[in-house]
């Protein structure tokens, strides 16, 4: 279980990025966090990943308090952030230092295979397209078998076709190994394709605005009627949240 208890984050420059954010995510659940830019979504993931310390509140993974990066928590950034001096295979195996060579090789291969890039282990990151690089980054996070997987707008820089195929791919990966998934996005469709629960966040400071349960079975048909109606509902909630924010700002 991932527990966020009254999380607040004020940056040293005084920006209140997050305020009193409380959320419980059961093991194996897939939750999407959606909201406009600057509403603290990345901050939330960085707190859970242990890259930042909360000003107030706690992050707990299976009862253990997170104060620094933890092996049970994997993070995929918005950009691939591959290390250019390592081959694709060695990038994937970056977190496997100390694992015996044969075992390491096997796990790298399995992780690359799970993202459909088994043949690319010897290539350099320079030779990867944007979508391939992001899949390598996903494999790098998956290879250590994290029980919580955090994704920060992982597909937002990709073209629509690649994005849709990677979303479907992520759903299959999640169904296979069932990590707890926390996906940050500003794409309504992406949230609905992947998540069991969608959380709308409103900004300045970031806090929960609305929660939607999505009970459609996976894999989801983007053109189905109930999917469309959920999309409308979610868009309405998001628009309301943005409007309120603009009124507050103006």
């Amino acid at each position: 279980m991932l527990e966020l208890r009254h999380l607040s984050k004020v940056y040293p420059n005084g920006t209140a990025a997050l305020q009193d954010f409380t959320l419980n995510v059961a093991n194996g659940e897939a939750v999407a966090i959606i909201g406009g830019s600057g509403c603290g979504k990345s901050t939330l993931l960085r707190l859970i990943a242990g890259l930042e310390q909360p000003t107030k509140g706690d992050v707990l993974v299976d009862g253990e308090r997170i104060t620094q990066p933890h092996p049970a928590v994997g993070l995929v950034f918005q950009e691939p952030r591959l290390l250019p001096w390592l081959t694709v295979g060695d990038n994937v195996g970056f977190g496997l230092e100390g694992v015996p060579a044969a075992e390491r090789q096997r796990r790298i291969h399995d992780a690359l295979e799970s993202v459909g890039l088994a043949e690319q282990a010897g290539k350099w990151p320079r030779e990867m397209s944007g979508g391939m690089a992001q899949r390598v980054a996903l494999a790098r996070a998956l290879v250590t078998g994290p029980s919580v997987l955090l994704l920060d707008e992982p597909f937002s820089a990709l073209d629509a076709l690649t994005r849709a195929s990677l979303q479907d791919h992520l759903v299959r990966l999640w169904q296979d190994s069932r990590p707890t998934l926390l996906l940050v996005t500003h794409d309504i469709e992406e949230a609905l394709v992947i998540a069991n629960r969608v959380i709308v966040v409103r900004p300045r400071p970031g806090r929960i605005d609305a929660v939607f349960d999505v009970s459609l079975p996976h894999p989801r048909d983007r053109d189905a009627e109930d999917f469309e109606s959920l999309k409308h509902e979610l868009r309405g909630a998001l628009d309301r949240s943005l409007r309120d924010q603009n009124r507050a700002a103006g």
Partner: peptide, 27 residues
Amino acid sequence: RKIVEVGRIFRLKGFALVRRILVPAIL
């Protein structure tokens, strides 16, 4: 800084962070 964070996510600190991230990055 973004590359350094990759090292931090994999719990590299001190000398390990220097050896596996900083040295190859500045080489």
